[in-house]
Design a protein around this nucleic acid. Structure first.
Lengths: 189, 189
DNA sequence: ATTTTTAACTAACACTTGTTAGTTTATTTG
DNA sequence: CAAATAAACTAACAAGTGTTAGTTAAAAAT
């Protein structure tokens, strides 16, 4: 069986549609049609359209939070921690291609859980920034604007959902290494 | 006068709203309310909601195309060309904060002009890729996966619209230099 | 074998959507 | 001053929105 529950199937089908047109442009009738049923039948499994969105986004955001906790409390070097963050993004994104699109494009349509999501995101960014700042203090990273470094890395990692699907025959491990090298060492000879 | 024409005011007001909630979630009544008039009055100045979106996106896409043509035909070094691309993105984004959000998030809602937009984007990416590949051939850039380099730089540059507004008191020139350094030389010591 | 549960259905609701038609009022032009 | 234009208005449209109520048929549990 491809899906654990019917609810799960609705959520994953919705993620595919949300990724194409965005949350607001996808109707309950669109979702139902993609599953071969009528819109009203969806409500046997979910309570609202909003619930679908929050199931997609919050579960992903919590995965990032959980893994970041492990990375930041390890005693690896700052560079190793950054490499682990790259791997974290590549892994989650390659396993949740469509959901990551929703997380990046539709988070502002969260209602009840918007504040919670923003808290998770802010904490994640703060942890990321701390790792960079520690790397600078300990002379592992070049002494430049930490904010610009954070912005550059995080922008690239958050865009993975756009690029990963285009590389169907991709060796994830290899890609992670290549990306880490470019992000950390740049492209200059 | 802040706006050249009333149509221009509608477009810029819409861009602000699109950036917050996305094209689909913004109604003509929202736009009208933001301007202090009724929705029907908008149609004295524009032909459709769709026209607003395409005015925002296509004009920006054409600016990028135009400038890229100048950069790619110059005989500067590859690294200099890349720095000029960084400056191009920073400049256009800082002057069109809200429009750039639409370009990045709502391009898929273009109807008549979708194909044209995709053509411009594809050409731009190809030009960008050629500059990187030339830089590798001419030993200016490190001999690594050009696609990963392109992805990394372009992702960061396309995300500028998210980050620039957060730095209100920003020296654009300085920021451009900092960003170029990080993108080209990395963060490793 | 009977009851309960699951998961689909039809029909309809109240509201919102982009847009059009027709009208009014103030400003600009001849 | 008269005529034309610009730009707002009210009212309404047909279609689409998320969701609810009530029903039905098959599968699972007792």
């Amino acid at each position: 069986m491809k899906y654990e529950t019917r609810k799960d199937e609705i959520i994953q089908t919705s993620a595919i549609l949300f990724q194409k047109k965005g949350y607001s442009a996808v109707t309950m009738r669109d979702i139902a049609k993609a599953m071969g049923i009528k819109a009203a039948s969806l409500y046997n499994h979910i309570n609202s359209k909003q619930e679908i969105l929050s199931e997609i986004i919050i579960s992903l955001a919590e995965q990032f939070t959980e893994q970041m906790k492990i990375i930041k409390t390890s005693d690896d070097s700052s560079i190793d921690k950054l490499k682990q963050i790259v791997a974290l993004h590549v892994n989650i994104t390659s396993n949740n291609q469509f959901g990551m699109a929703s997380l990046n494009s539709d988070w502002m349509h969260l209602e009840n859980e918007l504040e919670y999501y923003l808290k998770l995101r802010k904490n994640y960014e703060n942890d990321f920034r701390n790792i960079i700042e520690n790397g600078i203090e300990e002379n592992e990273l070049i002494d430049r604007n930490a904010e610009v470094m954070l912005f550059s890395m995080l922008s690239t990692l958050r865009s993975l959902y756009i690029w990963l699907p285009k590389k169907e025959d991709l060796d994830i491990q290899k890609f992670t290494n290549e990306l880490s090298l470019v992000l950390i060492n740049g492209i200059n000879k």
